[in-house]
Design a binder for these strands. Structure first.
Lengths: 201, 201
DNA sequence: GTCTATAAGCAGATAGAC
DNA sequence: GTCTATCTGCTTATAGAC
C-alpha cells in the first residue's frame, strides 16, 4: 500500500523493495488463520523470507503489526449509503448479499476472521471489532433507517453476522460450510431484515 | 466432584483434600476469562494456591486440564427431551429460555464461553464446540422434529446462539450487554423458531 | 534497508526428594 | 500428595554492525 503508491513524484522513493508489503501479506495470512497469540514475529518473518528484526524495524511492535495489517480493505461508508438508498423491505437480504460476497475475497475474509479470532482472547481487539461491526457497519444503517432502538437492532444484527462467521469459518460447522453464497444469503436475509426493520417485541 | 462424592464407603478415601477441585475451579475461571492460550499452568497453580507441578501431577497436560475442566455441568439429553415434549410452535422461545437462563449460572457460562474462546484459535477446541452445540444440543432437536434439512437448521440455530454469546459476553456489544434475560429471549426466540421449524427458502 | 547477536523472560513438561 | 529444581524451547524486543 504505502510502498507502491501510484503517484510517481520527483523526490527520492520512500521504500526500496516490496519487503514491507511482503511482511504485511504474511502477517495478514497468519493473523487470519491462527489469531493473534499464535502468530509470532518469527513465523511471519520466515513466511515473508526476511529477518525477524526487520519486522520490528517496520512495525515497532506485534500489536502495531496487527492493527496496521488488519485494517479493512474497503471503506464502509459508501456501502452503508448504498444499502440505505435501496428499498427498506430488502435491506436485510442486501446486507447479507454484500457481506457474504465480500467474504469471498480473501483480503476481506482474512481481516474479518482475524479480528474475530483476536477478539476472543484480547479485550483490546474486542474493542476493535465492536468499533467495526456494530460501530461503523451496522450502527449507521439502523440509525439512518429511522426505526426504534437503533443501537439494540445493530447489536442483534451484529450477533447474527458474527455468529455465522464464527460457525461457518472458525468452528467449521459442516452444514454451513457446505452452503454456497446465494443460499447463505437466502437463509440469513430474513433474520437480518427482522432485526433491522421488523417489529421488535 | 471426584473427591467429595457423597457416598461414604468403607475403603480408603480416594483423594486427600479438595486440592484437585481447587485447581479445577481456578482453571475453569481462567479458561473462561482469557481462553486457552493465555491461561498458564503457573497462573492456575498460583490462583489455586498450589505448586505448578501439582497441576501437572493431576492432569498430565494443559490440554487434558482444559478438556476435564470444560465439561458441561449438565446433561443435554434430558433438556432436548423436555424441549421436544412441548409445543413445536414455541420451541424456539423455549430453547432461548433454557440457554439464556443457564448462562446466568457461572458454572455454565464459564464453560461455554471458555469453549468458544478456545475454539477461536485451536482447531481441536473448535471440534469440541462443534460436537457440543450443533452436535449434542441442537442437532438432536432438529432431527427429532421431523423437519427438512435438520443438519442445516441445526447449523443456523447454532450460528445465532454462538453469535449472541460472542457479541454479548466476549465482544461486549453494549446494547446487548444491557439486555435482561427475558428481553433477550423475546428477541432471539423468533429467529430460532424460524431456523428450527419455520419455512426455509 | 538488512541482518547478527543477544538480552530478559516465560512457557510446558520432567525427575525425583520428602 | 506435595514441592524443589531444572531442562528445553520459545517469545518479544533492543542495540548496533554493515
Amino acid at each position: 500500500m504505502t510502498t507502491t503508491n501510484a503517484r510517481p513524484r520527483s523526490g527520492r522513493r520512500p521504500g526500496a523493495s516490496g519487503t514491507r508489503a511482503a511482511i504485511a501479506a504474511a502477517a495478514r495470512v497468519q493473523f487470519g488463520d491462527v489469531g493473534f497469540d499464535r502468530t509470532t514475529i518469527r513465523s511471519v518473518a520466515a513466511a515473508a523470507g526476511v529477518d525477524p528484526a526487520l519486522v520490528m524495524h517496520f512495525y515497532c511492535s506485534k500489536q502495531q503489526l496487527f492493527v496496521e495489517t488488519m485494517a479493512l480493505p474497503f471503506d464502509p461508508a459508501p456501502v452503508v449509503a448504498d444499502l440505505l438508498a435501496g428499498e427498506r423491505e430488502t435491506i436485510g437480504i442486501r446486507l447479507a448479499h454484500f457481506l457474504l460476497h465480500a467474504m469471498e475475497d480473501p483480503a476481506v475474509s482474512t481481516v474479518l476472521l482475524g479480528r474475530i479470532r483476536a477478539a476472543a482472547s484480547d479485550p483490546e481487539a474486542a474493542r476493535l471489532l465492536r468499533d467495526l461491526v456494530p460501530g461503523e457497519l451496522v450502527g449507521p444503517l439502523t440509525r439512518e433507517l429511522g426505526v426504534d432502538q437503533p443501537e439494540l437492532r445493530a447489536g442483534l444484527v451484529s450477533s447474527q453476522l458474527i455468529g455465522f462467521a464464527v460457525a461457518r469459518w472458525i468452528v467449521g460447522v459442516e452444514a454451513l460450510a457446505a452452503l454456497d453464497v446465494e443460499r447463505s444469503i437466502a437463509f440469513l436475509g430474513p433474520s437480518l431484515q427482522r432485526f433491522l426493520a421488523g417489529p421488535l417485541p
